[in-house]
Write a protein that binds this DNA or RNA. Structure first.
Lengths: 211, 211
DNA sequence: GTCTATACTTGGATAGAC
DNA sequence: GTCTATCCAAGTATAGAC
């Protein structure tokens, strides 16, 4: 373990007060967001960060490791904040409303875009797939907990198991993110959240009635 | 219009009996499927096609145009076949069953993967987004017609408009494709189709009852 | 420990051979 | 009309300067 970049956990930081390293992670996020995976090269990222491209390899060992560090950076922050927001919800309507807010925020800030680019780009770099997958697992688990808390008490858990539904929710989320970015219009996706809110109200009345 | 590649419609073929051109389109599909957008270069594609890389630019003018031709090639064939299959369905259960078969086929053959790579890769090439979007529109319309035929006769069209639902269905489809490829396991996605089939049976009984 | 200059590889594009 | 040889730009990676 001679170089900082080949440590087991990518992007741990705390390796010292290196401004370049921090700037590279930030620039990697921006590059994935704006230019996409295919243009996320050591040269373009370092140019955005305002430092020499060789530093990518000094700090991270490879471009892939830098991109994974970028993914870690956006994930950690978001997962914590969103978990707190979801934990504070009591009804299905509230949950969907929080989900819609999260989606809008992700779309505007481009956080989910980073994830989508990494998933789609994973097939272009050997060994990247499992690493990306490991960083999605917490999100599927997060969605699973939210759904569990929603239907767990009613008998609906047997109709659609929480884990199964969570997989679908994450897939839908990623798909909406992709389409919204492609057509440059978030209205279609947001309309679906509005519709889901209406259905959640119905659902809430339903589960309340059979209790 | 000096070169064949800069004609208004990409990949029209019938421009002559050029084996190289056909091989390039085929190789582009394979490359997008296996190596992803980021590695879909003129060199790697032409190597797979067994011809000189300069031919990419001779026939298509640019790598992007070749990739779009590849997208056209998979789309035209699939859309025709799937439309016929869906038109032959009568009940919601049948529709979901056909959808599951299509999904399984797409996943195995990697057709939807080509689409996902092009969508995610679109942000890496200026001007590619609108071209890809234009090639997705027929699919959203296709999903819209299928859903319309399903709920159009009942009063449910007002609860969830067909166009809105179609957008969600396409997003879900793309998201499932992405996740399935990432974790190399189609079981999670297929389980959702099984669940949908059960719900479709319930739905069929419901709309039958209120008629 | 931090960073740069440099070596080598791959990719996009075209002028011109056949 | 079809294709290849060749040019230059962009990318990865590292040896070594500070």
């Amino acid at each position: 373990m001679a170089k900082p970049g080949v440590s087991s956990k990518v992007g741990t930081a705390g390796d010292g007060p290196s401004e370049s390293r921090r700037a590279l992670v930030e620039a990697a996020i921006e590059t994935l967001r704006i230019d996409g995976f295919a243009r996320a090269s050591a040269r373009s990222i370092s140019a955005r960060a305002g430092c020499n491209q060789g530093l990518v390899f000094y700090y991270f060992g490879s471009v892939s490791n830098l991109l994974l560090a970028a993914l870690d950076a956006v994930s950690a922050d978001r997962l914590e904040r969103y978990s707190a927001a979801v934990a504070a919800t009591a009804s299905p309507q509230e949950l969907v409303e929080v989900a819609a807010t999260i989606f809008r925020e992700d779309l505007d800030a481009g956080y989910a875009k980073v994830l989508v680019e990494m998933i789609a780009g994973a097939s272009s770099t050997p060994g990247l797939g499992p690493e990306v997958l490991a960083r999605i697992a917490p999100w599927t688990a997060f969605a699973g907990r939210a759904i569990q808390g929603l239907v767990g008490e009613s008998g609906l858990g047997s109709v659609v198991p929480a884990e199964e539904a969570a997989y679908g929710v994450v897939a839908l989320y990623l798909g909406l993110e992709m389409l919204s970015h492609l057509d440059g219009d978030r209205a279609n996706a947001l309309a679906l959240f509005e519709r889901a809110k209406q259905l959640a109200t119905l659902f809430g009345a339903f589960t309340g009635a059979i209790k």
